[in-house]
């Protein structure tokens, strides 16, 4: 039986070294660059007609735009407008990364904790920086819940700080674990198809269902990551 974790293996395509650091172009890097290129092509090529009455591709691009646009508007409000390009890039990057990872023999870069953690950390640091720039020292009142007796304050502040600091961890682990578990499960069942001989149709049927399920997870996890980013942004912009 093939190793179900083999799909997460990273191997270099082009060796690149920046001093001591190994910055090789790997299969993961190729997947990321492909994601960027495909999203850019999708969002520009489908708008090339700039048609007043959109065709199918232009409708898709406009739908993506308005989907994220309304998400930012509903969750952050008008102040979220400057961050709209970032939120849209984040959503599209995760969504297309997940979807491209579903192609056979491709690579799912969102199934690597370091990638999801780097994105979550960037969101976390960015949101915190926006909070401090907007509200200055007042930003730290975020950790002081209102209407709590003074005796309880040290405990409450500790809890608030810990819950704030755990945001990037939960954000990154949710995406990483979902992608890795789903893809591993698919490979495990695929391995059973050959082991069970004639009865292999049963795990094959499961794999068909799992594939559909994974498409949903791919979208859902991109959505959850983005919506949580919006909520964090909203918390910092509007404190409480």
């Amino acid at each position: 039986m093939a190793d179900p974790l083999h799909q997460f293996e990273i191997y270099p395509v082009v060796h690149i070294s920046l001093g001591e650091v190994n910055a090789s172009l790997t299969n993961s890097s190729v997947a990321m660059l492909a994601t960027t290129i495909i999203i850019t092509l999708f969002m520009t090529w489908s708008m090339r007609g700039r048609a007043l009455v959109p065709g199918r591709w232009q409708s898709l691009a406009e739908m993506s735009y308005e989907f994220i646009g309304s998400m930012v508007r509903d969750n952050v409000g008008k102040e979220g407008h400057p961050y709209f390009p970032f939120i849209l890039s984040l959503f599209m990057f995760i969504l297309f990364g997940n979807l491209l990872g579903l192609l056979p023999y491709s690579f799912t870069f969102t199934s690597h904790i370091i990638v999801t953690f780097a994105m979550a950390l960037a969101v976390f640091l960015g949101v915190t920086a926006i909070g401090i720039i907007r509200h200055g020292f007042h930003f730290f009142s975020f950790f002081v819940p209102k209407g709590v007796p003074a005796v309880m304050l040290p405990l409450m502040i500790t809890i608030e700080v810990i819950s704030y600091l755990s945001r990037p961890v939960s954000l990154s682990i949710r995406l990483f674990a979902n992608m890795m578990a789903g893809h591993t499960m698919m490979k495990v069942f695929a391995g059973f198809v050959f082991l069970l001989g004639w009865f292999g149709f049963a795990p094959l049927a499961v794999d068909v269902a799992l594939t559909a399920f994974e498409f949903m997870v791919a979208f859902l996890q991109a959505y959850v990551f983005t919506v949580l980013t919006c909520l964090y942004l909203n918390d910092t912009i509007h404190l409480h």
Partner: peptide, 21 residues
Amino acid sequence: LYPSQIIWLVVSFVLLYLAMS
């Protein structure tokens, strides 16, 4: 494997952000 992934993540995402915005 971390440095290369982070570097290429930053490169890809910055490119994507620029192309989008």
